[in-house]
């Protein structure tokens, strides 16, 4: 990978190896496959959407970073 940025490589990748790797789970949400990271209180944060439907990527509920309740997942 070539980084082309004004931020130095060392700053961008600080703690890259030290950080604890969060457990990521693949689940279904609103009929689409999403990769989520569990948070506290039965909440999950979307990390990534896996779908072949371009429309799904415009749905704000499926954007990476949005928080969802655990009981909405299957």
């Amino acid at each position: 990978m070539i980084l082309y940025s004004i931020v130095p490589f060392e700053v961008v990748f600080k703690d890259y190896y030290e950080r604890d790797h969060q457990s990521k789970i693949e689940m279904d949400y609103l009929g689409e496959k999403v990769v989520v990271v569990p948070l506290s209180n039965n909440r999950y944060r979307i990390e990534r959407l896996i779908s072949t439907s371009p429309k799904a990527y415009l749905n704000p509920k499926l954007m990476p970073g949005s928080i969802i309740q655990g009981d909405e997942l299957s």
């Binding site: 961008v12 990748f13 600080k14 703690d15 890259y16 950080r19 990534r48 959407l49 779908s51 371009p54 799904a56 990527y57 415009l58 954007m63 990476p64």
Partner: peptide, 16 residues
């Protein structure tokens, strides 16, 4: 990228 970076994820932008 490590979590201290704010990022735009290309795998999400391209299908958008």
């Amino acid at each position: 990228l490590p979590p201290q970076n704010k990022t735009t994820k290309y795998e999400h932008v391209i299908p958008q």
